[in-house]
Design a binder for these strands. Sequence first.
DNA 1: CCAATTGTTATTTA
DNA 2: ATAAATAACAATTG
Length: 280
Amino acid sequence: MPELAEVEFFRKRWSAGHGATVLAVRLHAGKKVFRGTSPTLLKRKLTGATLLDSETAAKQMLFRFSGSGLPRAESRWLGIHLGMSGELRVEPPDYAATKHDHLILVQQQRQLVFNDPRMFGGVLFHTGKTPPAWWTRIAPAILSKEFTVEAVAVFLRRRARAPIKAVLLMQERFPGIGNWMADEILWRAAIHPQRLAGSLKPAEVRTLHRECRRVCRLALGTIAGKGRYLPPNLNAHIPKTWLFWHRWEDGGRCPRTKRLLVREEVGGRTTCWSPVRQKR
DNA sequence: CCAATTGTTATTTA
DNA sequence: ATAAATAACAATTG
């Protein structure tokens, strides 16, 4: 499920546990979400640690914990990727874990739950004074200064023969963009998803860049919430003027042209577009 | 039984 | 050799 803003939404849920100690760690060792990680080490190092703060980058979250005991102890860094079906929840102290709750951090007042039925998500763990490489090597955010028109143009030239839809899903240049955001961006930019990346004119590249930023900003504002306010459920505040609400319904119509939307596979993913608005 | 799913990676093909 | 297409992963739902 989760793309950029949705990931931020879930991270904020767990911020309920900032400043609180982890009394116990419950996990499903051996499950696929722990590939590349030692569940034993994670459990040992996080038990007794305090959750200090957290951040989001692309589709990943990083939670920082103090070391227990020694004041100069190294930090503990927990990375979570939600994959296709993952979510974070906050449950009461007496909550009983269910089948797909692969990692639970038990605190005095609550349990922080990572649930992921399909297990395309994953958990990473690191101990050290600075954030690990798997975190710092994430590409610069779309809303950062480094995400320039020129950087987009260079990338599109290198991926010239791939459909633009597929290129927007490449995390090394468009971190956090997933299937529905890519469609939303192309729909707003009025670019056909099957256009080859190298065929975009300079003006179209500028538009694409601008709509990438706009969709990220709007999605973060409506899904992840502003300031301290967290919407009760995901997507609750997305306006009906977005492609988002119409892309999956049969007979769905473009919110702008009111004409029927098209749904087809592009770049290996189901893609929705408005044929009147987005010409080949 | 078949097809579908908002993600990533390994493998195969061009 | 490089990049694009495809398969695979796992679980559930319609």
